[in-house]
Design a protein around this nucleic acid. Structure first.
Lengths: 149, 149
DNA sequence: GTAGGTGCAAACCTTTTGCAGCATG
DNA sequence: CATGCTGCAAAAGGTTTGCACCTAC
């Protein structure tokens, strides 16, 4: 799916949910969708400001919250108090491995992994809304380079 | 294993690593080990102060960092910028389900889940140091009570 | 016209840090 | 008796909020 289509999809969905579609939201959503990496709220703010200074920090945070709630964006704790986001349009669910040496993030997916989680939840009568699996460790390169401790 | 034994185990290990065993550390570790729930740094601080006011916030944070590094304590991002801790002496690894309605935390374990994670890491040449799987959703009670949204 | 959205700056919350003094090994 | 640890208070870093103004519907 291409950007313009994705944008319209988000706009239609947010309108349906009773949100207004403002200049700022359009700019923020467009910027977020354009990134195919993980980004922080501050990075997103910087990118938006670069294109249009009429975007404030508060609005970026507020819009990210709306997008996350609507399921267009997913937040990941970085472990140091902050979060990284990624948009989840046009690519399927995946989990993350985070290298403690260089900070690189690797994505992976395993259908059986998902099924076992669903089974575990079912057993407890728990209804899954979302889940996050993060594996921390050393990537291949950092093991060879003996970076860090 | 009982508390006094666990305490000695931690003390011996920290000494072996070159750390000093101070009054404050003993108090903090004892308190942390006494809790069989998840706790925040601030909660731990409050518990310690209650028993002995000679424990400062900074020392609690510093000690938690030492304990985490030594593998006696595990931290979990709460998603709102904070973290919860649990000690990992005397109970095996498990994952968590967090209820978005009432905040309750359920623990579960699935050996196959662990194996699939190891396999995925192996495929990427990644060496696992630790991992955290958190499932967010509604617990049985909150589904029935229609709490929240 | 009226909710709802925005920008600004200040508030917040958790965690970290600089520094002078203290206690452990 | 040297170094590591502690307490305090201030700083840091990320996020949220109060409020007056603005704008999409």
């Amino acid at each position: 799916m291409k950007l313009e289509q994705e944008l319209q999809l988000v706009e239609a969905d947010l309108r349906r949910r009773g949100f207004r579609w403002t200049l700022q939201r359009a700019a923020i959503v467009r910027t977020a969708l354009s990134s195919h990496e993980h980004f922080t709220a501050e990075e997103l703010l910087a990118w938006c400001k670069q294109k249009d200074p009429r975007v404030s920090r508060a609005t970026v945070y507020r819009t990210l919250a709306v997008l996350e709630q609507a399921g267009f964006v997913e937040g990941l704790d970085t472990g140091d108090g902050g979060r990284q986001f990624e948009h989840v349009i046009g690519h399927t669910h995946h989990d993350h491995m985070v290298c403690t040496g260089c900070g690189a993030i690797f994505e992976f997916h395993d259908a059986e992994l998902e099924r076992r989680q669903e089974a575990a939840a079912r057993k407890l009568g728990f209804r899954i809304e979302r889940h996050s699996l993060r594996i921390h460790g050393r990537c291949r390169a950092c093991q060879q380079n003996r970076q860090g401790s």
